[in-house]
């Protein structure tokens, strides 16, 4: 475990960031970010546009390589590994722009996501196990897409596509899940349904979610990390964050969390 994070209980840490920094030709989009996300926690990442939230997710999930700093998934170091290796280590990620397999049916999308073994030769067989099929059906029920399971994913509505992608993450069943603005572009009703789905995922997975919608944050959050200009500005339970003067000044405005 990284020495700078004394006080964190290594047994319960699901995701540990240690001095994570990325430098894009002199611009530090993420600057020495350190935090420990406990196993089973649901952490919300707040911050204005350009605060470095999505870049931080890119660094953790392997899309971008950090300049310095380290990332641990449990006690496995995943810094700078290829995306699929990080995913195999137990990290799942949902993108801001929903990304699903458009020409495959909803059910097929979930089945693909539920393939435990990543190898091409290991998967040269027909059909799925009973356990897999059962799990896929459970997930279809959780995300409310049972009636659309044979529909091509490309013809789903925006909200349904987001839910399908959440379902794919459930099928993938990683230890830690990163969600980048899962309610972007959703109606209020859709947002609340998304909150319900994320709550259902809680406990089974450790979740880090980037979100702007404060009603949604209040609905789901236990702990909040606020980022500002690439750095962590504050971290704590929602009540503490709401009253933190730095956070008010930098992000929330003098009126507090609305």
């Amino acid at each position: 475990m990284p020495s700078t994070l004394i006080g964190a209980d290594p047994a319960s840490a699901a995701l540990t960031l240690d001095g994570l920094t990325v430098d894009f030709a002199g611009f530090r989009a993420v600057d020495t970010v350190s935090t420990v996300i406990e196993s089973g926690e649901l952490r919300v990442l707040l911050g204005a546009n350009g605060a470095g939230k999505t870049t931080l997710m890119d660094l953790v999930s392997g899309k971008t390589r950090p300049t310095t700093g380290r990332v641990f998934l449990g006690d496995i170091e995943i810094t700078g590994l290829e995306e699929h290796r990080i995913a195999q280590a137990g990290l799942g990620r949902k993108f801001q722009i929903p990304s699903v397999f458009r020409d495959l049916s909803v059910r097929r999308n979930l089945e693909v996501a539920s393939c435990r073994n990543p190898g091409v030769f290991a998967n040269l067989r027909l059909g799925f196990s009973l356990a897999q099929t059962r799990r896929v059906e459970e997930i279809l029920a959780v995300v409310g897409l049972e009636s659309k399971q044979e529909v091509e994913a490309g013809s789903l509505s925006h909200g349904e596509t987001q839910w399908l992608e959440l379902g794919m993450l459930m099928a993938q069943d990683p230890k830690v899940i990163l969600l980048d603005e899962p309610t972007a572009g959703m109606t209020e009703a859709e947002t609340m349904k998304t909150a319900a789905i994320i709550k259902a995922m809680r406990g089974r997975h450790t979740i880090v979610v980037v979100e702007h919608d404060m009603a949604f944050v209040r609905e789901i959050a236990s702990r909040i990390t606020v980022m500002h200009l690439g750095r962590i500005l504050a971290e704590g339970p929602i009540a503490e964050i709401e009253t933190n003067p730095d956070v008010r000044a930098a992000y929330l405005g003098s009126k507090g969390i609305q």
């Binding site: 999930s61 995306e83 699929h84 995913a87 195999q88 799942g92 990620r93 993108f95 990304s99 699903v100 397999f101 458009r102 020409d103 495959l104 097929r108 999308n109 089945e111 693909v112 996501a113 393939c115 990543p118 190898g119 091409v120 030769f121 998967n123 040269l124 067989r125 027909l126 799925f128 794919m168 993938q172």
Partner: peptide, 26 residues
């Protein structure tokens, strides 16, 4: 086969497939 399905998934969105843990080039 499952591999055939994963191949079609890669065709539709290779990034999504990568982040699900599949070694896309293979």
């Amino acid at each position: 086969t499952r591999s055939g399905l994963i191949l079609q998934a890669i065709r539709d969105d290779d990034r999504r497939a990568r982040f699900l843990g599949f070694d896309v080039p293979r």
